[in-house]
């Protein structure tokens, strides 16, 4: 028996359990399904420990070997241990923990999110260069949709908002639904391959 066989059997049983609980409430499998999902939470907690070990190992080595910009690694490890120690000893409501979270973590996340607008502008600039027929169609459609959503568009031509809505509601929605249906069926097929053990690359295995 191959070493991955028990994992494949377990995957199949758990997969069938979750599917049956979703479609067949009459079987009263909710408790078993919740229990399995609770195991997932416990495994995730252990995985977080492994992730912390991975961080310490990689960044610790960077500091020891004085690799380029090693001070970033030192700062990362300092804040990692700072948050762990303060969080465990004083709790997550303690001012020193909350201060770091509210005044360091949250603004940095918001800054990265805000920078998205600049990334969108640079990506759109490249995408809208009319190099081919497809790119030209994209450019014209995007211009109409933007003019339809901006007040200046309606001021130029009253039909811009309706035309923009048509592009979004008909061709755009049709393409999106096509992708969505294909992706849903593809996900089901992948799920079946994983459940029956044909696809086990995620276990580090090869072909069937």
């Amino acid at each position: 028996m191959k070493s991955s066989t028990p994992v494949i059997v377990l995957t199949f049983i758990v997969g069938i359990l979750i599917i049956a609980e979703f479609f067949l409430p009459g079987l009263n499998l909710a408790n078993a399904s919740n229990e399995v999902q609770n195991w997932g939470v416990v495994i995730a907690a252990f995985a977080l420990g492994l992730a912390a070990v991975n961080l310490v190992r990689i960044h610790g080595r960077r500091i020891i070997l004085r690799r380029s910009e090693w001070w970033n690694s030192a700062l990362l490890l300092f804040f990692l241990f700072y948050m762990i120690v303060v969080g465990i000893i004083a709790g997550t409501d303690y001012i020193a923990y909350e201060f770091a979270f509210q005044n360091v973590m949250t603004p940095l996340g918001a800054t990265m999110y805000a920078m998205l607008s600049f990334w969108i502008a640079s990506a759109a600039y490249r995408a809208f260069v009319a190099r081919s027929i497809e790119a030209s169609i994209l450019l014209i459609s995007a211009a109409i949709v933007m003019l339809g959503n901006a007040p200046i568009g309606e001021a130029i031509w009253a039909r811009f908002p309706a035309l923009g809505s048509w592009i979004m509601d008909i061709p755009n929605t049709a393409a999106m639904r096509g992708i969505m249906i294909g992706a849903a069926i593809g996900a089901i097929a992948l799920g079946i391959r994983v459940m029956v053990g044909i696809e086990r690359g995620y276990l580090g295995g090869g072909n069937e």
């Binding site: 992706a183 097929a189 069937e208």
Partner: peptide, 28 residues
């Protein structure tokens, strides 16, 4: 979309995995 899910099967060139892609096309 679906190309992502089919990718590993296509890369492997494993006929059994490719068979499941053919089945998936009937679903479409």
């Amino acid at each position: 979309g679906e190309e992502l899910y089919a990718a590993s099967a296509i890369c492997s060139k494993n006929p059994i995995k490719l068979g499941s892609i053919a089945g998936q096309d009937i679903g479409k």
